[in-house]
């Protein structure tokens, strides 16, 4: 397998790990940060797939703005998830 393929597999595994972490964490702020990390890795994956347009859009919307909106919503409500 080439270096490109290895990098891609690592990125994809980390994306799934970040998404699972975002579901599993009880602290909502930490879950949002995990979601942002997964989103940033997804933008790296788009870049590796030679789609820089989508990569810029994903980094701007998914990693930055969505995180900002979630952080604002958590600031207005509660930080801990309740059963």
């Amino acid at each position: 397998m080439t270096l490109w393929g290895v990098l891609q597999v690592i990125t994809l595994v980390l994306i799934v790990a970040g998404a699972a972490l975002a579901v599993w964490l009880r602290d909502l702020l930490a879950a949002v940060i995990a979601l942002a990390a997964a989103s940033l890795l997804l933008s790296l994956e788009f870049y590796l797939l030679q789609a820089p347009d989508v990569a810029i859009a994903e980094a701007g919307i998914g990693a930055a703005l969505t995180t900002a909106i979630y952080v604002l919503a958590i600031r207005k409500t509660r930080r801990k998830e309740e059963e």
């Binding site: 347009d53 810029i56 859009a57 900002a68």
Partner: peptide, 21 residues
């Protein structure tokens, strides 16, 4: 170059969100 109005606007709006927060 790669990008365009939507992508650049999203990047600049994230800067605005950073400043505002």
């Amino acid at each position: 170059t790669p990008g365009g109005g939507f992508q650049g606007g999203a990047v600049a709006a994230s800067a605005l969100a950073l400043l505002a927060i």
